[in-house]
Amino acid sequence: MTEADAYAIFSDTIWAILIASGPVLAIATAVGLVIAFFQALTQVQEMTLTFVPKIAAIFVGLVASAPFMYGTLARLSEVVFDLIGSGGL
């Protein structure tokens, strides 16, 4: 295994992690911005208003995007296991 092969595996791994976590991070960011905008408009500074809806949205996002996350990580695992099986690693 050369340095280029190791770099390709690490690069693919990082991209898979970023792509798999993207939907949940986008949901958390969007809900956080909506809540912050609501708090700025109404002057309501309740701490539970910040955390409870965001946690609920993240949970729903995790459940909804679990098949996509599994598919992304399964493709990466398949590539790595094929490399191991062929003696590339």
Rank of each mutant, 00 (worst) to 15 (best):
E3W: 07
L73H: 04
T13C: 07
G22M: 06
F81M: 09
I35H: 02
S65W: 02
T13S: 15
M47T: 11
V79P: 01
R75Y: 06
T72V: 11
A56E: 02
L41R: 02
T29F: 15
Q39N: 10
V79L: 11
A64I: 15
V63P: 09
D12P: 00
D12G: 07
F51W: 13
V80G: 07
V44D: 07
K54E: 04
Q45I: 00
Y70K: 13
A56P: 01
F81L: 15
S65M: 12
E78R: 15
P53H: 07
G71D: 13
E78V: 06
T48A: 04
V52L: 13
Y70I: 09
P67H: 06
V79R: 09
V24N: 05
V34D: 05
V60K: 08
I14C: 12
L33F: 10
A26V: 11
F38H: 09
A26M: 10
D5R: 08
P53N: 13
L25T: 06
I55T: 13
I14G: 09
A40D: 04
Y70A: 15
S21T: 13
A64M: 14
T50E: 04
V44A: 05
F37Y: 14
Q39W: 01
V24K: 04
F68W: 13
V34L: 12
A8T: 10
I17P: 04
F38E: 10
L76H: 12
G61W: 04
T13A: 10
F59C: 10
F38Q: 12
V60Q: 11
Y70C: 03
I9S: 06
V24D: 08
P53I: 00
F37K: 06
V44M: 06
I58K: 08
I9P: 05
A4T: 09
P53T: 09
F51G: 12
T48L: 07
F38G: 02
